[in-house]
C-alpha cells in the first residue's frame, strides 16, 4: 500500500482547558486536495496548528506522521523544514515589510539565489505581486495579502500546503479567482489540505472531504460521496431538502452519538 503524505491518528488537543479536538484521524494521499469543512469553532484551525506544532505541548494524545516520519510534538521550525507550508487564517503577512521582503522571509531556509529562482515561479501564479513587489505588505488589499501569504508559503517549496480559510473576507469574484489559482497549484503537483467554511468552493476543487463538528469528524469520503449525502447537501451546500427546523433537530439528534 502506498504511504499517505500525512497521517493523523486519533489526536486529542486541548485549547486552554477545552478539549477542542476529540479524537481526529485523517490521512492525505500524495497529490490530492483534501478539504476540511465545518463551522466557526468546530476546530478546523486547531487541526492545522496541532500538526504544525504551534500549540505548546499538544496534541495531548495521538500521533502525526508526515511522509512516514513521526512529527508529533516537534518544533514548528523543524516541521516546516521537512516540507509543510502553512497559510494561516487572516493572512498574517509581515505588514511593514515589502512584498519582496515577505517572499524572501518565506524562503529563509534556502540561499538567496535559489530563493530568487522560486520567486519567479511564484510570480507566475500571482503576477500582481510582481507589480507590487516594492510596496509594503500592509498597504495591499485583502485579496493581494492572501495571495502574498500563499506565495510566501510556496517559497519554501513545500510538498504539502495547509490553507486556512483562504476565502475569508474576500469578495465572491476574488474568491473565484483565488480558488482557480489554488486549483492550478494543486494540479502542478502540490498536495493541499484546505480548511474552509465555504463548502461549495472547497468541494469544487477537492478530491476528498471531511466534515468537522465540535471537534469530531461526522462525515468523510470522496467529494462525490459527500455531495450525495443528504445532510451535507442540506447543511453545508445549502440545497434545501425539507423543512429546516425539524431537519436541524433530527440532524442534531443523529449526530449526538457520533
Amino acid at each position: 500500500m502506498k504511504q499517505p503524505m500525512l497521517n493523523i491518528k486519533n489526536i486529542e488537543t486541548y485549547y486552554d482547558r477545552i478539549l477542542a479536538l476529540k479524537g481526529i484521524s485523517l490521512s492525505i494521499e500524495n497529490g490530492s486536495v483534501t478539504a476540511v469543512l465545518g463551522n466557526n469553532g468546530a476546530g478546523k484551525t486547531t487541526i492545522l496548528q496541532t500538526v504544525i506544532g504551534l500549540l505548546d505541548d499538544q496534541p495531548e494524545k495521538g500521533s502525526i506522521f508526515f511522509q512516514g516520519r513521526d512529527i508529533t510534538g516537534k518544533e514548528t521550525v523543524d516541521i516546516v523544514k521537512m516540507g509543510i507550508g502553512y497559510v494561516p487564517e487572516g493572512r498574517e503577512v509581515f505588514q511593514e515589510l515589502s512584498v519582496l521582503e515577505n517572499l524572501m522571509a518565506g524562503g529563509y531556509m534556502h540561499n538567496s539565489a535559489s530563493a530568487k529562482e522560486t520567486i519567479e515561479k511564484v510570480y507566475r501564479y500571482f503576477p500582481v505581486l510582481k507589480e507590487r513587489q516594492k510596496q509594503m505588505a500592509g498597504t495591499l488589499s485583502g485579496g493581494e495579502q492572501q495571495m502574498l501569504a500563499i506565495s510566501r508559503a510556496l517559497m519554501n517549496r513545500p510538498q504539502l500546503l495547509f490553507l486556512d480559510e483562504p476565502s475569508l473576507g474576500l469578495s465572491p469574484l476574488l474568491v473565484d479567482q483565488l480558488f482557480d489559482i489554488i486549483h492550478q497549484i494543486a494540479k502542478d503537483g502540490l498536495t493541499v489540505l484546505l480548511v474552509e467554511q465555504n463548502a461549495n468552493k472547497a468541494l469544487a476543487i477537492a478530491d476528498y472531504g471531511y466534515i468537522l463538528e465540535n471537534g469530531r469528524f461526522v462525515a468523510s469520503g470522496t467529494v462525490e460521496q459527500l455531495k450525495r449525502d443528504e445532510d451535507v447537501q442540506e447543511f453545508y451546500l445549502g440545497i434545501k431538502a425539507e423543512e429546516s427546523v425539524r431537519a436541524t433537530q433530527r440532524y442534531k439528534r443523529k449526530r449526538r452519538w457520533n
Binding site: L54, V77, P88, F94, L97, E101, A105, G106, Y108, A153
Partner: peptide
C-alpha cells in the same frame, strides 16, 4: 530580515522556518 520578520509577527516568522 529575520529580525524584522520576528519583530513584526513571531508566529508568521516561525511558520516560515525562521528560528
Amino acid at each position: 530580515l529575520a529580525i524584522k520578520a520576528t519583530q513584526q509577527n513571531e508566529t508568521a516568522a516561525k511558520i516560515n522556518g525562521i528560528p
